[in-house]
Design a protein around this nucleic acid. Sequence first.
RNA 1: GCCGUUGUAGCUCAGUUGGCAGAGCAGCUGAUUCGUAAUCAGCAGGUCGCCGGUUCAAAUCCGGCCAACGGCUCCA
Length: 650
Amino acid sequence: MHVELPDGSKREVPDGATVADVAASIGKGLARAAIAGKVNGKVVDVYSPVPDNAKIEIVTPKSEAGLDTIRHSTAHLMAMAVQDLFPGTQVTIGPVIENGFFYDFGTDRPFSDEDLRRIEEKMAEIVKRDLPVRREVLSRDEAIATFEKLGEKYKVEIIKGIPGDEPLSVYRQGEWFDLCRGPHVPSTGRLGAFKLTSVAGAYWRGDEHNAMLQRIYGTAWADKDELNAYVKRVEEAKARDHRKLGKELDLFMFSQFAPSMPFFLPKGATIYNALIDFVRDFYARDGYSEVIAPIIFDTELFKISGHYDNYKDNMFFSEIEEREYGVKPMNCPGHIQIFAMERRSYRDLPIRYAEFTRLHRYERSGVTHGLVRVRSFAQDDAHLFVTPDQIEPEIERELRLIKEIYDIFDFKEVRIALSTRPEKRLGSDALWDNAESALESALKKNGVDYHINPGEGAFYGPKLEFQVTDAIGRPWQLGTIQLDYALPERFQLHYIGADNGVHQPVMIHRAILGSLERFIGIIIEHFAGAFPLWLAPVQASVLPLSEKFLDYGRETAATLRKAGLRVETDESNEKLGAKIRDAQLKKIPYMLVVGEKEVAAGTVSVRKRTGGDQERLGSPLNLDRLLRSMSVDDFVAEAKRGIAARSLTL
RNA sequence: GCCGUUGUAGCUCAGUUGGCAGAGCAGCUGAUUCGUAAUCAGCAGGUCGCCGGUUCAAAUCCGGCCAACGGCUCCA
């Protein structure tokens, strides 16, 4: 018979040949590397027979399918080791995830880090035994009987939940086996580049009302080099962790007296305010009005808005003079008060209220994380009150604004999701049709790619969600645009139209950076703490070569400050090398060295933080190339150009 | 909220079997006056997260609470 290879060539193989046979017929190396096969697009075990005229691809560890197979098989390998070491532990599920796998076990005894090491050792032992991994097919009833006999109640539950009556497969390696669809590597000897990373509690079937299982996470790769590269990547991500950098760079702190509510230290507050100023520039250009509303409101307001019914569990409350107040979790009810203050004309619309005041949301303990999930924060949000005709142009304008702003931070790849009507919702289908198509046509008109999240919209309207990818490839959700017909209805908002009739406005809720706290956390990691000049808390540090040049240094710093730059002078009694090291570690964009030459010429010697390092470059330092001597005025002009352009490079 | 881990000087961390609380960096003082990633010396620094218990004696053992961390659930 014949098979077709990925390059389109045909190959003759004996009848009944398996994937492994095909691989062997192509070459010895490939046969050794084969861990699975793709037959007509479906991934199968290497010893699966191949039908005549099939399209065959040999799956090796380096391919995506190969890596998935390795990870899946490593999960099985771990489960076998666990059941060997801890008899009575029940198996549940063990899927492949990004970079690795996990397996959930039913056990009363949580695993310790010490256990993880023992499990790893046992796994290595099983790898060494190089046990063949073989698929066996059982009828549904046989499968249930088999796992019931073993007391594997979770597996029994899984089997009972599989629809239909098709036979089920188990994979056996040595004396151990597990229910599994497969495919798997041909033998345990093909595994080895793995590491168990953590243990955590996880609910059976992801439901918090169910039993808590013990989940072990692991990572697995094609070979040791890839594993080591991954470990290195994890370490790099750790070095960028905004909580670590926030401490090192004196940006923010927390107090046990205000759990999960960040304090911005002077340097962090500088970034915070720079971001607000940045957004305000666009507000001025695009016709937003900034307002400041109270932070606490009588709960009556939240009863009208629906927050009391739908959001109470996430709010802070207080009582005074026998009146109950709620701390606002969102700005919309406040903006609605302002809108409703007076009779509005269609000529006034669109009205765009923006606000940066603090919001508080009670997040369950255990869910908060650094700056990216907190209980006290501000958003760059705005509420647009528009006529139905204005919905589309306003959304298009917001789309352009969002792109413009994200580009400035150099976020690669913005993914847009359109979240459509959920099961539980307010308003008629006709209204939803309108709202969804308004969002969709704005997307289409602007030629942007998007995908649909069916049923993920807010109860009051559909939303667009904007996800960016940071410098090391991690996705973050930032902005959102939401169309809302419900709140104008609940608050009985009106405007007088051109026809002199009473009409209801539509609200657009939107945020671009999202929460400022969260955004700062994200950009700390995105820039690895090395903020672009316009955001850097300290833009330049003046480094006097010795005490003799302190006066000139202070004078220079004063000149720069007068020019609007954020400048420090390093007056410590240290040698230049130490001062440079300090400034580098603080990731200060410019270091201005002043010594005898500079005093004489009235200049500064500029070293950029990107300027390199003698040791690290491993070559003799070329000072002329690295440094530039320039007048103070020239430096001011250069820095101001960089700031005005919000340039990412120095 | 749930499962697990952690909490010692400003920071990073050590602290053995329950027996006087430790280091490096940072800080302060002094010397040095220096040319592109750490000058030298000295000094000071503690409610061992908080509360309670066991003990002659607790950073160490036990209980409770608080906070942080890794996940789960949640993210309107």
